[in-house]
């Protein structure tokens, strides 16, 4: 179960059961010899599953022989780690200085209205998660938003619907092609 109580369609392939444990067992070997392996391992697990479930934290704790409390403490410290499933596309609105003075707050408002969610939430269809960021180093192109690893520059609120539609379309065509 995930805290949103919705596990149907469009969420990452596997969310429950032993798959995280299996995945972690399959990749753990090099991490056991690596000094300071906890964070890189957590990053790899999140990369694969999109978030870090209770099961994942337990398996990481077992795999590295670290107390679960320690793993939990690290996960909750860093803003990139998510304890809840996230959408297919993670939208991050930069609220760095340059973006802020050039109207990033309006872009964020518009995204919240379009997606009907707040910051940190995921749309009910599991497609978009909305978050804010602290400078992506694209200040020359402010205001910017980052969707997964792609930077969109000089975004005006009026462009938001079109940008979102583009991502919905790409997801649909991927589904049609059976991916």
């Amino acid at each position: 179960m995930n805290p949103h109580g919705k596990t149907e369609n469009a969420l990452p392939e596997v969310l429950t059961g032993n798959s995280e444990a299996e995945f972690i067992t399959s990749i753990i070997a090099p991490y056991r010899d690596m000094p300071g392996a906890l964070i890189p391992l957590l990053q790899a697990v999140q990369q694969k599953f999109g978030y870090l479930s209770d099961n994942a934290l337990r398996s990481v704790s077992d795999g590295l022989g670290l107390p679960l409390a320690k793993v939990f403490g690290v996960v909750t410290f860093y803003s990139f780690f998510s304890r809840v499933p996230r959408g297919k596309f993670l939208i991050r609105v930069c609220l760095g200085t340059a973006c802020y003075v050039l109207g990033a707050a309006d872009v964020l408002d518009c995204l919240q209205k379009e997606l009907e969610i707040g910051v940190g939430q995921t749309t009910s269809d599991g497609i978009f998660t909305l978050d804010v960021g602290r400078c992506f180093g694209a200040c020359g192109l402010a205001p910017v938003i980052m969707i997964n690893d792609t930077v969109h520059q000089q975004v005006r609120p009026s462009q938001v619907p079109k940008i979102l539609a583009g991502y919905r379309k790409s997801l649909l065509s991927a589904l049609e092609n059976g991916q």
């Binding site: 973006c99 400078c135 180093g137 694209a138």
Partner: peptide
């Protein structure tokens, strides 16, 4: 490089 407004290290 965390200071918002700085992107030289990235570049």
């Amino acid at each position: 490089e965390g200071d918002p407004g700085a992107f030289m290290d990235r570049s």
